[in-house]
Nucleic acid binder design. Structure first.
Lengths: 116, 116
DNA sequence: CAATTGTTCTAGTTATCCTAGAATAACTGT
DNA sequence: ACAGTTATTCTAGGATAACTAGAACAATTG
């Protein structure tokens, strides 16, 4: 399955769902134009409420990663393509962090903090 | 003030407080051995409950960024030094992301996702 | 010994997350 | 034009996490 969640994690379900999709795009397994399974489908497959899945999809839309329209579903946006380009840079940063004893979660918090 | 928060943000207060400290360490304005203001002090300064401040401090301790002991207070740990080394790499990644239209928040979510 | 500082405990309020069901609107393919 | 698919919006309730408040306590410092 494309989307996986860990029910035991304290991380919100909608966040985990969105993270799954981001990771797929980053890895290049999902590309612009590819369609995500309908929210109802995902809902049944992973046993989570439809609203929760849709919230994840809407978060991805607000990031510009997917186009989301009724009747049509969720489709990876063209704006998402650059993500795959960053994959190596991100992996490299995480490697360096780990070598220095900095956890990815700490690193992520730092990235979020940097003011452009 | 060293620690700043945005009461209107949806991000938890204790997270914002911890993020402030991380950012200071990253920027090199806080270094190993430097002492953070006492929790009660911060509490009054930014008008947030003491427990909330302490929770932020404890999160930083669990990351190995500060030493936290009663009677003594919170002191930047030696293990936090490597953070400053990563500052340039992080800034560079964020720059590239922005040039490609990827928001720092999205980038952060990706960093958190990478499996070591 | 006195002052400082984090730790632990109980307790109550508020916000967020998740679930549930139903009606509605936009789009697709026939 | 029509039927089917899909997201959108609404109301509602329960569970969990965040925040606040006050108090007593233990370790450290000077």
């Amino acid at each position: 399955m494309l989307i996986r969640i860990d029910a035991d994690s304290t991380r919100p379900l909608f966040e985990q769902i969105a993270a799954s999709v981001r990771a797929e795009v980053l890895a290049g397994r999902l590309r612009a134009g590819d369609r995500l399974p309908a929210a109802r489908e995902v809902s049944e497959a992973i046993d989570v409420n439809v609203h929760t899945v849709l919230r994840a999809y809407q978060e991805l839309r607000s990031e510009g990663l997917v186009d989301l329209r009724r009747g049509r579903g969720a489709v990876i946006a063209a704006t998402a393509e650059p993500l795959a380009v960053l994959a190596d840079d991100i992996a490299e940063l995480v490697r360096r962090g780990i070598r220095l004893g900095v956890a990815p979660a700490t690193l992520a918090a730092l990235v979020k903090e940097v003011a452009p």
